[in-house]
Nucleic acid binder design. Structure first.
Lengths: 194, 194
DNA sequence: ATACTGAGTTACCGAATGGTAACCGGCTCA
DNA sequence: TGAGCCGGTTACCATTCGGTAACTCAGTAT
């Protein structure tokens, strides 16, 4: 049945397959047997590459998080002003969502947030996005409120994406990004000092 | 140890205690024994009031969802124009979050989204919020995009709340609501027909 | 030929957990 | 006073699932 693969190749394949399985069934809903079967091997093989189910899951969160981070960083690096930074950031975000539905569901789908260890990893990811957003609020405002608003903006993208992914259909990320970023930018400009 | 309660009283107490336990440990992380112990009874008592663990959880989602819905509906009923509708809606939302941390975490914390059945229940709740938001986008725009933007706005509140609840401290819901609703309203006004 | 390497399998264990059958004991009312 | 209602308990079962020890077997280098 199963092709014999080199260790690194098998590891990659397992990560690939596990993302699919976890995204669809969740951490608790997916058993190691399920993943092994989907990968065309047996359980002990998984344990040759990952110490535990948790480690496998954590590795996935890490990897998917990196993909997201990298995409956004690359996209916004070119921007000079806040407005285009906003536009490019959202575009990168929605493009990522559009072609990594499984990744989105793994991180934000969720069920990952239930576990303290996983939740921390995911919070780190959203916190990074928020840190990129915070400076776009130009007005003088309480630091803690600025952080909260930044997280709200991140939630904006998440809320839209959850629906889009939930619909199951493909969507045009650039079109969505244009509208959402327009909303976000206008909103950010409207924040006033108290 | 355990006080002898009437059936309806016990049922209420179980719901109360279960919300606490589930909110903190998640659906899978909390065992029926945990809940029974927290309620000061034994497992079979739970099964006298709820058919299964899932039914108990579902009942909680339903109840918490109703509280949220009711609060928002009551608050926005008095509003005449879109702007104050937005303000009052967000204020009701954040007030609910502020005094029902456990409820918020149960619905959006989450882990509830992992299960199809639970996810549907929660989607229904956010979809209702979105339906209230959608008419605030006055411009002529594709219906599906309008829906997506409405969900984005709901995500706005969720994103802010998740951070606030995550910090573990109490917060002033009205202050947050003022800022977030200002952001949302300005953002909604900025959506342009394509 | 032989011995080694390393990917993969079979078969199993132990713990946790959802759920249930059978029983208990105090209160109330005829 | 005794029957029965009802809230509650003890003790148990069945199953799932993470994790592991021991083994197989093909290729390869000597």
């Amino acid at each position: 049945m199963s092709q014999r693969l080199s260790a690194p190749a098998r590891r990659e394949q397992i990560l690939d397959v596990a993302l699919d399985v976890f995204a669809n069934a969740g951490f608790h809903g997916a058993s190691m047997n399920d993943i092994a079967e989907a990968a065309g091997v047996t359980k002990p093989v998984l344990y040759q590459h990952f110490d535990s189910k948790r480690h496998l899951y954590q590795a996935l969160i890490e990897e998917v998080g990196n993909r997201l981070r990298t995409n956004i960083d690359k996209a916004t690096a070119e921007a000079t002003d806040g407005k285009s930074q906003t536009e490019l950031g959202f575009r990168a975000y929605f493009r990522w969502v559009a072609d990594d539905h499984d990744g989105f569901r793994l991180l934000f789908g969720s069920g990952s947030r239930r576990d303290d260890e996983f939740n921390d990893a995911i919070r780190k990811i959203t916190a990074e996005s928020a840190r990129a957003v915070a400076p776009l609020i130009a007005v003088d405002i309480d630091e803690s409120h600025r952080e909260t608003l930044a997280h709200a903006i991140v939630g904006l993208a998440e809320g839209a994406s959850r629906r889009l992914v939930g619909l199951g259909q493909d969507f045009d990320p650039d079109a969505i990004a244009a509208e959402v970023s327009a909303l976000a930018w206008a909103g950010l400009r409207a924040v006033t000092p108290r």
